[in-house]
Simulated scan of single mutants.
Amino acid sequence: MIEMIDIGMADAIAYRIEGKITEEEMKTVLAVFKEKIEKNEKLIVYQEVVSIGGADFDALIDKFKFFLEVGLSHFSRIAVVTHKKWIHKLVDLEGKLFKGIEMRGFPKEEKDQALKFLKNG
């Protein structure tokens, strides 16, 4: 499940992932991304991962189509907050691979630091 959440930052896209991601949920998030891109806004993303239970195949296809269509240049900063250490390592690796995007993983206890990172870079 993907649930859009409010983190008190009007320019950020914020959502929580818990369990399995459906195609409909993926389309909802990607529509928000596209809307900001069409307004020439840089994407600032807050992602809170409670648990990952997989994703519908069509949801993954939609995500890959989106990235093939728009690329990564629209992303500015991404903060991923989770208690799963392997996700922190993955996010940090992605941050090194995609140098144009500031990406960091944060433990749940450091949510305030994640928000500060998104605001200030």
Rank of each mutant, 00 (worst) to 15 (best):
F66A: 07
S51M: 10
F67P: 02
A79G: 03
A59K: 02
D112F: 05
A114E: 03
L93F: 12
K116E: 14
I78V: 12
L60N: 10
V70E: 10
D92H: 09
F67I: 04
E94C: 14
F64E: 13
T82F: 03
E94Q: 13
K63G: 14
Q113I: 12
E48D: 08
K63F: 15
L115E: 02
P107R: 12
F66L: 13
G105F: 01
A59I: 05
D92S: 11
F67R: 01
K99W: 14
L93P: 00
L68G: 14
F57Y: 11
V80W: 01
E69L: 14
S76D: 11
K65M: 15
F117H: 06
F57P: 01
I78T: 04
K65W: 15
G54L: 11
G95M: 05
I101M: 07
K108E: 12
K65N: 15
V50G: 06
H74R: 04
K99R: 14
Q113R: 15
D56Y: 08
F67H: 13
R77C: 02
L68T: 11
G53Y: 09
I101A: 04
I61D: 14
L90S: 09
K84V: 11
F64W: 15
E110W: 05
K89S: 11
I52Q: 05
K119N: 14
I78C: 01
K85P: 02
A59T: 04
L118M: 09
E110A: 13
L68C: 09
I78E: 02
K96G: 12
F75V: 01
I52V: 08
V50Q: 13
S51L: 09
K63P: 09
G71V: 09
G105N: 06
A55T: 04
I61A: 15
K85L: 10
D56H: 13
F75H: 02
G95C: 07
Q113V: 12
G54Y: 07
A55F: 06
G53E: 10
V91K: 00
I87Y: 00
G105R: 00
M103Q: 10
A55I: 08
G100H: 07
G100S: 13
A114Q: 02
K99T: 15
M103P: 07
L97K: 00
H83A: 14
H88E: 06
L118T: 03
E48M: 03
K84G: 01
I87V: 07
A59Y: 03
I101T: 06
L97D: 00
I101V: 12
K85Q: 12
A55M: 13
L60Y: 09
L97W: 01
I52E: 02
K63D: 15
F106N: 01
F64Y: 14
A79M: 04
E48H: 02
H88Y: 01
K111T: 09
L72A: 08
D62S: 15
V81R: 00
T82S: 10
S76M: 09
I61L: 15
F66E: 08
K84R: 13
S51G: 12
G105D: 03
H88R: 05
F117L: 07
K96T: 10
K89H: 08
K96S: 12
F66P: 07
G105T: 06
S73E: 11
S73T: 10
L93E: 08
V91R: 01
G100A: 11
V50H: 08
R77V: 02
L93T: 10
V49T: 04
S73Q: 13
K111Y: 00
E110P: 01
